[in-house]
C-alpha cells in the first residue's frame, strides 16, 4: 500500500465512529459551504477595516485572491480537458495520474463514504486549488486574516479526505495548482500595476473602494 493510501486509510478510518463528528465533516466537506464562507470573508475584508491605508491594501488582497481563485480553478479545468480522456497520452504516467478514480471507485480499498459519488476523476482536487489559491493570496498581504483562511482551507481539505472522496495527494495536487495560480496572479498584478491602480481609482471615484 502506498503512503498516499496509508494516509487516506488513517484519515478516512476516523469516519463512521461518532455520528456527530461525521455530520460535522460532511458539512465542512460540502461543495459550497467553505468556499462561500471564505468568499464572505473577502467581502468583509473589502469593507471592514478601520484605517483607510490598511483597507486599500486589503482591497488589493481581495482582488488578488479573486484572480488566484479563478486562475487556479481554470488550471484544474484545463488540466482535466487536456489529460482526461482515453485517447490523450494513453499509457503515460500523466494519463494515469489525471484519470485516477475516486477512492470509493478504486475497488481495492475499504472506504467509509459519507458523501455523494462525484463522477469526475480524483486528481487534482478542484476545491483544494480554489481554497488554497484564495487563502494564500490573502496571506501574502494580510497575515492575520490569511492565517484564518488557510486554517479554513486545511479543514475543508481534511474533510474531503475524511468523507472518502479524495486521496491526500489529490489535495496536495490542488494546493500545487493553487501555488502556481497565486504566483501567476502576483506576477500579473506586478506587470499590470498601472491597470490595477486604474481599476482601484475608478472604484474609489465611485465610492466603492479606498
Amino acid at each position: 500500500m502506498s503512503l498516499d493510501e496509508t494516509l487516506f486509510h488513517w484519515i478516512n478510518g476516523l469516519a463512521g465512529h461518532v455520528p456527530f463528528i461525521d455530520r460535522l465533516f460532511m458539512g465542512l466537506a460540502d461543495d459550497y459551504f467553505m468556499i462561500i464562507a471564505m468568499c464572505l470573508v473577502l467581502v468583509g475584508l473589502w469593507f471592514g477595516t478601520r484605517k483607510p491605508e490598511e483597507r486599500a491594501r486589503n482591497q488589493v488582497a481581495v482582488l488578488k485572491a479573486m484572480a488566484s481563485l479563478g486562475i487556479a480553478s481554470g488550471f484544474v479545468s484545463w488540466a482535466n480537458v487536456i489529460f482526461v480522456g482515453g485517447d490523450k497520452f494513453p499509457g503515460t504516467l500523466i494519463h494515469e495520474i489525471f484519470n485516477r478514480p475516486r477512492p470509493f471507485a478504486s475497488g481495492g480499498l475499504t472506504v467509509h463514504l459519507l458523501f455523494y459519488k462525484p463522477t469526475d476523476p480524483s486528481f487534482p482536487s478542484n476545491l483544494a486549488a480554489v481554497v488554497f489559491g484564495l487563502a494564500l493570496a490573502v496571506w501574502l498581504m494580510n497575515k492575520r486574516t490569511g492565517t484564518w483562511l488557510l486554517v479554513m482551507a486545511f479543514v475543508a481539505c481534511f474533510a474531503r479526505v475524511y468523507v472518502g472522496i479524495h486521496y491526500p495527494s489529490d489535495i496536495l495536487g490542488g494546493a500545487v495548482f493553487a501555488v502556481v495560480g497565486v504566483a501567476i496572479t502576483y506576477l500579473l498584478f506586478w506587470a499590470l500595476a498601472p491597470l490595477v491602480r486604474l481599476i482601484i481609482g475608478i472604484l474609489k471615484a465611485l465610492y466603492l473602494a479606498g
Binding site: 460532511m26 466537506a29 460540502d30 459550497y32 459551504f33 462561500i36 464562507a37
Partner: peptide, 14 residues
C-alpha cells in the same frame, strides 16, 4: 445562510 450551505449536499444529494 451558511447553515443551509452546510447541509446543502445532504439536502440536494442529487
Amino acid at each position: 445562510a451558511l447553515g443551509y450551505f452546510f447541509v446543502w449536499n445532504s439536502h440536494n444529494a442529487t
